[in-house]
Every structure is written in C-alpha cells, then in structure tokens.
Amino acid sequence: MTATGSSVINKIDFKQILQKYGIVFVLILMIVGISIAEPAFLSRSNIFNVLTQSSIFGIMALGLTFVIISKGIDLSVGSILALSGVVLASLGQAASATSKYFPNMGELPVFIPILAALSIGALCGGISGALIAKTKIPAFIATLGMMTIARGMALIYSDGRPISTLVPSLTALGGKIFGFIPVPVIIFFIAIGISSVLLQMTKFGKNVYAIGGNITAAEVSGVNVSKNLILIYAYSGLLAGLAAVVFAGRVGSVHPGAATGYELTAIAATTIGGTSHAGGIGTIWGAFVGALVLAVMRNGLTLIGVDAYWQQITEGVIIIVAVVIDMRKNAKKD
C-alpha cells in the first residue's frame, strides 16, 4: 500500500480513530442519552457514584486484560475475591465485633490484612498459572477448578458466615476523602496506572502481547513463556485480592458467597473494551472504558427507573454487539 497523498493519510487516520475509540463513542452516546432523560445523572456525586460502582469489577477487568491478551481466560477472580475477602475481614475485625473470628486477637495494623488479601490473591492466581504453564491443561479448566476451590476455601474458612465489623481504617477504604472523592475510585485509578505501566512500558507487558500473539514465536524469540504465564495469572489474582480490599471497605463485611459471577462481569468489561479472545490485542484503557460502559448502563437504567433485571438483558446484548463490531474492524483490515 502506498500513500499517494495526504488525503489518503487523513482518511486512514480517521478510520483508525474510529476503530480505536469506537466504544468511547458508544459510551458518550449513552451518557448523552441518559443525561437528557435524567439530568441528575451528570451531578458530581452521581459521576463518582458510577466510578465507585465500576471500581470492583473494573479492578478485576484490569487483570483479565493481561490474561485475555495472552490468549487465556480466568474464571476464578470472583471466588478469589471472596477468599481474600474473608481472610482480610478475619484479620481486620474491630475489637468491638460481637462474633470475632480470632477471639483473642487484638486489632492488627491495617496493612497486615491488606497484605494478606493481596498475597492470597496472587498465590491463587499463581497456582492457576503454574497449572496452565506446567501441565498444559486449558486455562478454562485450570481457572474453573480454582474458581470452585477458592470458593470452597472461603466457605470453609468462614464456616459459611459473613465476617463483619471491620476496623475503621479498613472501612475508610470504602469511604470518601475531602468529603467527596471516593477512596475506591482512587484505588481503581492507581491500579489502572500501575497496570498501564506494566502492560505498555515493561518487558513483562511486551511478553504478554507476544505470548498471546504467537506463543511459538515468543518461545523462539527467547521469551520465558512459563514464567510469564505464572506472572500473568498471579497478577490477575493479585488484583482480585485488591478488589477484595475495596469490597470489604465498601460493604464493611465479607460474605464467603460474595462476588459470585463477578468474573463474568469482569470478562464482559474487558471484552467490551476491545480485548480480543484471539489473543495479542487489548489495552488497559479499553478495560476501563468497558467497565464504565457497564457501570453507566446500570446506573443510568436505575436512574431512569428501569427494572434492574433489564440491565442484565442489555448487558448480554452489549457484549455480543461490542464483539461483533470488534471482529468487523479486525476483519476489514485483512
């Protein structure tokens, strides 16, 4: 293909912009539509509300972006949230709690439960990754296994009961600073920043793309495929642990059945954001937009007064439509 003039270049650029930001236009259209129907949607508090709502599955979607770019899947993040969450809650109960998980333990410094949640998440993910890398079983199976194992462990650990009354420094993580900026949103943005840097600016990130793009070529080019696979799933698990911290902060207690089905919402957000299940394609930015699309839709439909159930219906349609658009765009390029 030879560019004969600047007009051709402009045309290509325009097309690329449309392809790259297609889902953003959808998001803007949604926002405009909802705001017309319900102006309260655009209030400062509601915008923060939407961001807060998107933060938990949004954080998971960031990890899934790594996983899906590497041509894998992680079904275990919802359960890992629950397991990390109950451990976090058990270590972070306030002295005033009526039913204490560790009756004789005083209040621990807040970083201990948080660190525990993150490490458990990373460990669970790392185990899935190791299974995938070493035994070559499909990621679907390994993480489906981890999904039920982690859920089972959460139930066993908590004896099926929610663990509540957390120390104020933990619940503060679900609150606001300066009276209006929700902490979950700040955590979400920090996670977005770190994930972006990891994916775009480090060797690890480049390897993730390479593994998803062509695993044989990656091996031949000297990429340590098994190590990177373990890291990818460990990072996904770590972010599920982080999501557990946010969850605990917002809800103030953690139920072992928490976050059931969140993995699918997170996968949906990632997919809507343009990350391809064929591997090698996707961005953190996309996952963020995907999470926003889902959150805006849920929030907007609720504001307009649409039955909560219709949100699920719309979600199902949006996933398929987003992927169809995405496939079209990739097909056209051939």
Partner: peptide, 9 residues
C-alpha cells in the same frame, strides 16, 4: 507465520 511473526502486533 508459525514461529516468526506476531501477526496482529
């Protein structure tokens, strides 16, 4: 194609 390029990258 098999072991050289990463086609979509």
């Amino acid at each position: 194609r098999l072991s050289g390029i990463f086609p979509m990258l």
